[in-house]
Design a protein around this nucleic acid. Structure first.
Lengths: 369, 369
DNA sequence: TTGAAAGCGCTAACAA
DNA sequence: TTGTTAGCGCTTTCAA
């Protein structure tokens, strides 16, 4: 152990410049709290207190400091603040594809609601790439986020990736992890959209209109939302006495418009025209409608369509798609509330099931014959 | 000036725990570089070097360290790194509305390309709110981003907000600011999409098909992209001998689907049916098509439509919209290249005009009569 | 109401 | 090849 000298009063360059009296020559140098303190003739502690608005500063001193802060547009260095406080008020929000309006909408709701709690958010966009998701989770951890919320990707998988689970488990030792979906073997707070209800709403609506030849299109069996829908759909076939035909359950492994198009083309090629179609999301619905239109079928005259998610796309397709919608605000409120409660070590509900509802627009009507 | 004692070897708690020999009881305490160093029996410098992969570490030592890093899933604290290096490899990307696929697409291209340069991005989503934009710019500065790229909002305004300009000017003293658009009085690197070319492509295409009654719909006169389009459109009316009717230039002040719908309704109500419509973006186009469809008009049989931006929406509307498209990758490559050049103080081009091109799909054909 | 000093976890210049 | 040490800019005791 040795004794070392430390110049008091801040970073070396400032301490020196103070002695050299060249404080005015700051040029393009970044302003720090030391500059403000020097110019205001107070200690950095006082400036720090003024900036934090902790009230322990004389009104006059406060004004003097703030005037200088304004003058230089001073922005305290976040990295230094985070390091000093050893914590942040940032929630990392991971989504699997920000270009998808479903996730974009969830994200902006998270952003909005987090702000009401005094938190900010940072987006991690995994681009639908499970490997990249690992990297992003590491990055969020490195950024010292106070909590992580995840939509899609690994938390939608029917069988969770073991390595990802291990990583999340380690993370959760000091960082709350909250998901819209689930992660096998991880006891984290969850908000789940009830897909069974969603499919039931859709099928019931169509059955009541008189449809029996109903197809379910889109998604991947390896993802919970699609899997769940398919399971419930199969069950409802008996309940409502629908036409039972495996070709009417097309799970192409993807939820893109291209996938929807392909499925529809295949059905048409096989001569198996359903009277109504339930599409797993709005992209698939768009593809299905392209195919229908190319073959001269109209919606809803020839075929009815119900979609999921109620993104702006569903308003735009045809004369507006009937759709299974969710209270996005509610989902995000619940997620953020859970995250904040965990961060602040308060008790809270750890699971929430959100029930979808149906919005009837102009893509469904009774079958022709 | 006083002499003060400082315990060597890192944060106090580690130095103490070293003496108390309770290193194993780390529990949920966050792992730091000190823990790794202690367990590996080396100095933190060596660990730091191993993590940075600077090559100056013996292979054996390196492996030993990395094994321990893996074991604990150790993530070095970003805040500390940023503070120590006094710089980041992060580019802040500000967009005015991430829910808009145009911006979402730009953002993911920026993300992708930045990564190729070894930079990461953080998204700032101003939600179309100019006041919030100020706040976000401050936040980006506080986060010590290496550069800021902005799409939309203030950099689209015909007349820039003076306060924002002042703020950016201050920021630019140490942080490159690069825009897709322009900011009055700010000499920053810019990439501009040539909207005049865009409108010319659209009008030429329609004129060649035989259209003379062409309407331009959507946008706000206070925003450059729409303004520019309107100016060039007016010029082309003479060039191509188009029908001159002020009602055919509908600039509702917004680019939403609702705005497009309203404009179209108004035109129809006035009995002024154009034979072709140029829509300022895909949202407006969607609204226009809703209105047309509600009145029994078909695209392209009764009316042709050309849209702008070529987002996925344009693929989905009708049988696919003919659209003015851009090389998104090129735009973002140029922006990132400029930003990185400025960060690394290299010379570069400071302005780039990107020329749009036309994608013909199924929403345009010769007029009926 | 203010200030001095220590500490947050990391990097890098310098020394060994 | 490795270690020692100062410093990054801020917050937060503790003392005055």
């Amino acid at each position: 152990m040795r004794m070392i000298a430390r110049l008091q009063g801040g970073p070396l360059r400032y301490t020196i410049s103070r002695y050299l009296c060249c404080g005015a020559a700051m040029g393009s140098q970044k302003i720090t709290i030391y500059d403000i303190a020097r110019e205001a003739g107070v200690s950095i502690t006082t400036v720090s207190r003024a900036l934090a608005n902790s009230g322990k500063v004389k009104q006059e001193t406060y004004s003097r400091i703030m005037r200088i802060v304004q003058k230089y547009h001073f922005q305290p260095n976040e990295a230094a603040r985070i390091l000093a406080e050893s914590k942040t008020k940032i929630i990392g929000v991971m989504v699997s594809q920000i270009e998808n309006p479903f996730y974009a909408h969830m994200f902006i709701w998270c952003e909005r609601i987090a702000e009401m709690y005094g938190y900010s958010t940072i987006l991690a966009n995994s681009m639908g790439n499970l490997a990249y998701e690992h990297k992003l989770l590491d990055k969020l951890a490195a950024q010292q986020v106070a909590a992580v919320i995840q939509f899609g990707g690994n938390v939608d998988a029917c069988v969770s990736d073991a390595e990802y689970v291990a990583k999340v488990t380690k993370l959760m030792r000091h960082t709350p992890f909250v998901v819209s979906g689930k992660l096998d073997g991880v006891r984290c707070c969850r908000v789940q959209i009830n897909d069974s209800t969603g499919i039931r709403l859709a099928v019931t609506h169509l059955a009541q209109l008189g449809h029996r030849r109903i197809a379910l299109i889109g998604g991947s069996e390896r993802e919970v939302p699609a899997y769940q829908k398919a399971v419930e759909f199969r069950r409802l076939i008996d309940v409502y006495g629908l036409c039972r035909d495996e070709d009417f359950i097309c799970i192409p492994g993807s939820s893109s418009d291209a996938a929807g198009y392909e499925c529809m083309e295949r059905l048409i090629a096989k001569g198996k025209m359903p009277s109504a179609i339930i599409s797993i999301n709005d992209f698939v619905a768009a593809g299905v409608m392209q195919s229908l239109s190319a073959h001269g079928f109209s919606v809803p005259e020839d075929v009815s369509i119900i979609s999921f998610d109620d993104t702006f796309i569903s308003r735009m397709l045809g004369r507006g798609l009937t759709t299974v919608s969710y209270d996005y605000e509610l989902v995000c409120s619940a997620l953020i509330a859970m995250a904040v409660s965990e961060i602040e070590k308060r008790t809270q509900e750890s699971f929430r099931l959100v029930e979808p509802f149906l919005i009837c627009r102009s893509s469904t009507r009774p079958p022709k014959n």
